[in-house]
Nucleic acid binder design. Sequence first.
DNA 1: GGTTTGACTGAAT
DNA 2: CATTCAGCCAAAC
Length: 111
Amino acid sequence: MQDSHARVYAAIAAIPPGRVASYGAIAARAGLPGRARLVGKLLGEVPDGMELPWFRVLRSSGEIALPKGSRGFREQVRRLCAEGVEVKNGRVALSAFGLDADLDRALWGAI
DNA sequence: GGTTTGACTGAAT
DNA sequence: CATTCAGCCAAAC
């Protein structure tokens, strides 16, 4: 297991229920700034059965990254809804559910 | 070993 | 709002 993988998984696992984060934010928190695509790639290879809140990861725009109507897409919407995250037309309001500065600091303790 | 691809992003048009 | 473009990088071709 690569170090970067473990950090990405940790960053995702640390997102609190009812909140979401962007691929870029996860990458940055994993110490891999500018590598959002790598995060997406990793998520695509997460083995089934691994406990990981992958559904809390969205595009920076708040849209779900998976193709609309695909199985994964529906799964993601379903899980987010179950946690109280409002998904409208395949999209989440990051202003309401994204991690803001305070929560970010509380979670990661950084800066 | 060059090219393409991808669950991305941000700025510009 | 949609398109385009340039960064980004591991993996697959």
